[in-house]
Amino acid sequence: MGSINPSFLHIGSTVGALLMALMVIFIRLKASDRPVTIRKILIPPLGMSTGFFMFVVPEVRVSLWWALAAFLAGWFIFAYPLIKTTTFHEKEGLIYAQRSKSFILVLLGLLLVRTLLHEFIDRYISIPQSGGLFFILAFGMIVHWRVFMLRRYSSLVPQ
């Protein structure tokens, strides 16, 4: 069984990240036309959590400290732009996410930062490990953003 050239893995992961970012942009633009519900807030991080199964593979595993640092970077740094650009409005008794013009720029900026960090980190750890770290970073970012959304949504829904 032959090995895969690392540069192909890097190109593949970058293209994959770009496609995922475009998919998120498309889904978010469509979602702003539908009312927000608790279920719609909670499903993305729950669905994403299945990605932790990648750590069953030994080549993907990283130290607990690195994983914690990635999660905290996602939680405290990368979630901030998403939180700042997420607002809700009420229409006919339903809560909708306000479409933000800066949301697309925020996501593309996060993708650029991810790509630049990827270049730096790949010098020190393997491509599967960096993929795992960026997954943990993204998970921290999404969880914080969705916790914010849930709190904001709960404050707007009549009791």
Rank of each mutant, 00 (worst) to 15 (best):
Met1Trp: 00
Gly2His: 00
Gly2Asn: 00
Ile4Arg: 00
Asn5Arg: 05
Asn5Cys: 00
Pro6Ala: 03
Phe8Ser: 01
Phe8Leu: 03
Phe8Glu: 00
Leu9Val: 01
Ile11Glu: 06
Gly12Glu: 02
Thr14Tyr: 11
Val15Lys: 10
Ala17His: 05
Leu19Cys: 09
Met20Arg: 05
Ala21Gln: 10
Leu22Phe: 15
Leu22Tyr: 14
Val24Phe: 15
Ile27Asp: 14
Lys30Ala: 15
Lys30Cys: 15
Ala31Asp: 11
Ala31Gly: 09
Val36Tyr: 11
Val36Met: 12
Ile38Pro: 01
Arg39Pro: 00
Arg39Lys: 12
Leu42Gln: 06
Ile43Ser: 11
Ile43Arg: 07
Pro45Leu: 04
Leu46Ile: 15
Met48Val: 10
Ser49Gly: 15
Ser49Lys: 15
Phe53Asn: 12
Pro58Leu: 15
Glu59Phe: 12
Glu59Leu: 14
Glu59Ser: 14
Arg61Cys: 14
Arg61Val: 15
Ser63Leu: 03
Leu64Trp: 09
Leu64Val: 09
Leu64Asn: 06
Leu68His: 01
Leu68Gly: 03
Phe71Asn: 00
Phe71Cys: 02
Phe71Trp: 12
Leu72Phe: 09
Gly74Ser: 07
Gly74Leu: 03
Trp75Leu: 14
Trp75Arg: 06
Trp75Thr: 15
Phe78Glu: 11
Ala79Tyr: 07
Ala79Cys: 10
Leu82Asn: 15
Lys84Cys: 06
Thr86Pro: 13
Phe88Pro: 01
His89Ala: 07
His89Asp: 03
Glu92Ser: 08
Leu94Lys: 13
Leu94His: 09
Tyr96Pro: 04
Tyr96Trp: 08
Ala97Leu: 13
Gln98Phe: 08
Gln98Cys: 09
Ser100Tyr: 10
Lys101Asn: 15
Lys101Asp: 14
Ile104His: 09
Ile104Phe: 10
Ile104Met: 12
Ile104Lys: 13
Val106Ser: 04
Leu108Phe: 13
Gly109Cys: 06
Gly109Leu: 05
Leu111Ile: 04
Leu111Thr: 01
Leu112Lys: 06
His118Pro: 00
His118Asp: 06
Glu119Thr: 07
Phe120Lys: 09
Asp122Trp: 02
Ile125Asn: 02
Ile125Pro: 03
Ile125Thr: 08
Ser126Asp: 00
Pro128Trp: 02
Pro128Val: 01
Ser130Tyr: 08
Ser130Val: 13
Phe135Ile: 05
Phe135Thr: 03
Ile136Thr: 02
Ile136Lys: 00
Leu137Ile: 04
Ala138Val: 12
Phe139Arg: 03
Gly140Ser: 05
Met141Ala: 14
Met141Phe: 08
Ile142Phe: 14
His144Pro: 08
His144Ile: 09
His144Cys: 13
Trp145Lys: 12
Arg146Thr: 07
Val147Pro: 05
Val147Tyr: 10
Leu150Met: 03
Arg152Trp: 04
Arg152Phe: 05
Tyr153Arg: 04
Tyr153Pro: 00
Ser154Ile: 02
Ser155Phe: 00
Leu156Arg: 09
Leu156Lys: 11
Val157Ile: 04
Gln159Arg: 10
Gln159Phe: 06
